[in-house]
Design a binder for these strands. Structure first.
Length: 347
DNA sequence: AAAGCGGGGGG
DNA sequence: CCCCCAGCTTT
């Protein structure tokens, strides 16, 4: 039995029962695949259920607003996925009259769908013979065949895709792809892989050479930038001043409190002296810290975030600023750090 | 080819 | 603390 057949056999006996495995509707598969990009199944599952309930078809999705989609996406991260989904849903509604495509060539041209996702949707929904290569597949193949070429190098990606293509069971591509990924996720895990119960460990390079820890190889680069976010809490009765972020930075088009970003940590008395404060402060000012400094960790940035209560002006805050009732906050897409603070502070 | 983009979980 | 997660887009 070749590797594919062995893993399929393992999969059929050990697979998890996941909702998107009960459908061949390319729209539903698409929904699940985008949500699961760089996201664990357990984390994405509740979002999948909520999105499917609210948008049962791509036509429903296409009719949504960006605020609505981002609000539903809140907390999941990589928010461009949500914005791209709306763009794609509207395109599919127009171009394909609401019939979500299932062929690799059509899928790969859509925004938010790359090689992995096009292969996944086309194989799962139409049994097209395209091999998926995700983080799980990289790991399984690197270990089994002992490949130390970096998985995130250009050459490495080609090497692993070619290998996966050759391995694909063309008679049952959907089953093959599911098996490869499930095996990587459940058994051939990044840390502490379960080699003891692995059906293919006797043929596995990494097992035989005690190299599971060293494989796969990944070039690491990530440089982390420190940023200092001083958020202002400005209330007017039961209303709160909010600001809609623009493009070109994190959290595109999401809602936050008025923000003054500084080059370093800023004490209260220094914050008061900043020229940007004139945009927000009343004449008789009073500032009071209402939180400690939170460290909010993103992949490429560490945010040091503080919240300060300010007696605001009566108006004239500028473009993008608006007062909204506190009870309306649940309808705004908030970055997690803002959501957590407001939830804590307002209750 | 490299950088940018969230948030959470596990060791 | 580190790494990884059903990756993609932009530069």
């Amino acid at each position: 039995m070749d590797l594919s057949a062995q893993l399929i056999k393992w999969y059929q006996a050990n697979k998890r029962d996941l909702p998107w495995r009960h459908t061949t509707d390319p729209y539903v598969i698409w929904l699940s695949e985008i949500i699961l990009q760089q996201t664990r199944v357990e984390q994405g599952l509740p979002y999948f259920n909520r999105f499917l309930e609210k948008y049962p078809t791509v036509s429903h999705f296409a009719a949504a607003t960006e605020d609505e989609v981002l609000n539903l996406w809140q907390g999941l991260g990589y928010y461009s996925r949500g914005r791209n989904m709306l763009y794609t849903a509207r395109l599919v509604q127009e171009l394909y009259r609401g019939q979500f495509p299932s062929s690799y060539d059509q899928l790969i041209s859509l925004k938010g769908i790359g090689e992995y996702t096009a292969a996944a949707i086309s194989s799962f929904s139409a049994n097209e013979a395209k091999a998926v290569v995700d983080g799980n597949v990289y790991r399984v193949l690197a270990r089994y065949y002992g490949i130390d070429e970096p998985i995130n190098s250009t050459g490495g990606k080609k090497t692993f895709q070619s290998l996966a293509d050759g391995l694909l069971d063309k008679n049952r591509p959907a089953l093959h792809n599911q098996a490869m990924m499930e095996f990587g996720a459940m058994l051939c895990k990044p840390k502490n892989p379960a080699c003891g119960i692995c059906p293919v460990h006797l043929d596995c390079y990494a097992f035989k050479n005690n190299a599971t820890i060293a494989l796969p190889v990944k070039l690491k680069t990530v440089k982390i930038r420190k940023r200092y976010f001083n958020y202002l809490l400005i209330m007017r009765g039961d209303e709160i001043l909010m600001h809609k972020r623009g493009a070109g930075d994190i959290w595109t088009n999401m809602y936050q409190l008025p923000l003054i970003e500084t080059a370093g940590p800023t004490e209260l008395h220094n914050l008061m002296e900043l020229p940007q404060m004139q945009q927000f402060m009343a004449d008789n000012v009073s500032l009071s810290p209402v939180s400690q400094v939170y460290k909010h960790v993103l992949t490429h940035q560490h945010l040091y975030v503080s919240f300060t209560k300010v007696d605001g002006k009566t108006g004239g805050y500028g473009e993008g600023y608006f007062f909204t009732e506190v009870k309306n906050l649940k309808n705004l897409a908030l970055p997690q750090i803002i959501f957590l603070f407001l939830t804590k502070f307002l209750n």
